[in-house]
């Protein structure tokens, strides 16, 4: 087999955690790791959807402590490296010590795309612990390629081995993704990656465009299991690469089996890009807000579309799930006042 053209990180067990409301069990993690590892997926990411320490009222409590899930993954993997996500402000650098001891290889440190400097101590801690450090610039559609480069350079200066352009809202067009990856590739010495979401049904196309610009790493989730409309589906990306003559070193049929037989049963409806999913991409709203917005719409009797559009207007960023409650309460109060007014 020829050397792979890029490194693929499968985030089914991290970004996919959003799609199952953080209810993964040890047995599910074992089965997913076993099947992806056997298919030749080189990196598997496991954490609460909002990263280490994400288990909370605000983002949803984890059914199983993520350290137990990581221990199970360490036992199952043969070749794959294991990654975790950490968002400074939610998790703390100390969490990395725990997971390094468990046997994790890679720490991905995520910040909003304008706030790279809050990741300094976490990237440095990862390197001190002997982990590979990946910088993860979320909601990257909100910054111009040039401004994004400035933030990526900060992460590189802290010691990041790779910096990702992260399309958390699935809002990027092919040109948006291409220009951001190209700008980073031109100026950074470290590797560059793209994390794509599928709200506008462009995740695979954006990933292929990123490869044309020299991207070193890409993310996928098997069946697309992930926040919002879902991620770049790993098995489709692998098949599309195969057809494009791009080497992945991943067995396309084995990863297809993993998707169909192991991951699909976890959430059969995954892959449908419904109204809410498209709206997130259209309004540029953080993907993991979708299920919370649907629950709040039901709880307060308001329209999920109105919640998503108002969140977009307020320019909320990743982590502000509390604002979904705020917006839903306000919409329902406004509706009640309008109804009272109509009665007079």
């Amino acid at each position: 087999m020829t050397a792979p053209a890029f490194r693929l990180t499968d985030s089914t067990l991290r970004d996919g955690s959003h799609a199952v409301a953080h209810q993964f069990t040890v047995d599910q993690v074992r089965a997913v790791v076993r099947s992806l590892d056997a298919a030749g997926v080189p990196v598997i990411e496991i954490s609460h959807g909002d990263g280490l320490g994400g288990s909370s009222f605000n983002y949803g409590f984890s059914r199983t402590d993520e350290r137990l899930l990581l221990r199970a993954a360490v036992e199952e993997r043969r070749r794959a490296k294991l990654a975790v996500l950490l968002l400074p402000g939610i998790g703390v650098a100390h969490d990395l010590e725990d997971v390094a001891e468990i046997g994790v290889d890679i720490a991905r440190i995520a910040t909003h795309c304008t706030e790279a400097d809050i990741a300094e101590q976490h990237i440095q801690m990862a390197k001190r612990l002997g982990l590979e450090a990946v910088g993860f610039l979320m909601m990257a559609h909100m910054l111009s390629p040039k401004e994004l480069l400035g933030q990526a350079e900060l992460m590189e200066s802290y010691g990041a081995d790779c910096v990702y352009v992260v399309d958390s809202a699935g809002a990027m067009t092919i040109d948006d993704a291409r220009r951001r990856v190209a700008t980073l590739k031109n100026r950074l010495s470290c590797q560059v990656g793209l994390h794509a979401h599928n709200n506008l049904a462009l995740a695979v196309a954006n990933s292929l465009a990123a490869l044309e610009e020299g991207a070193d790493q890409l993310d996928g989730c098997t069946t697309g299991l992930g926040a919002g409309a879902g991620n770049c589906p790993t098995e489709i990306l692998v098949a599309a690469c195969e057809r494009s003559g791009i080497s992945t070193a991943i067995d396309p049929f084995a990863v297809l089996d993993a998707a169909e037989e192991v991951v699909r049963p976890l959430r059969p409806q995954q892959g449908v890009i419904d109204r809410g999913g498209v709206l997130l991409g259209y309004a540029g709203v953080y993907g993991s807000f979708l299920l919370h917005a649907q629950r709040a719409a039901e709880r307060f009797g308001v329209n999920v579309k109105d919640i998503i559009l108002e969140l977009g207007r307020r320019k909320v960023v990743g982590g502000q799930e509390d604002m979904i409650i705020d917006v839903a309460v306000e919409l329902s109060r406004r509706a009640a006042m309008a109804a009272a007014g109509a009665n007079h």
Partner: peptide
């Protein structure tokens, strides 16, 4: 949990207590 929001114009400080 702390979140930094770069919106322009700048947002007022928000706190949510559960």
């Amino acid at each position: 949990i702390i979140v930094l929001n770069p919106a322009d114009p700048a947002i007022y400080m928000r706190n949510t207590v559960f």
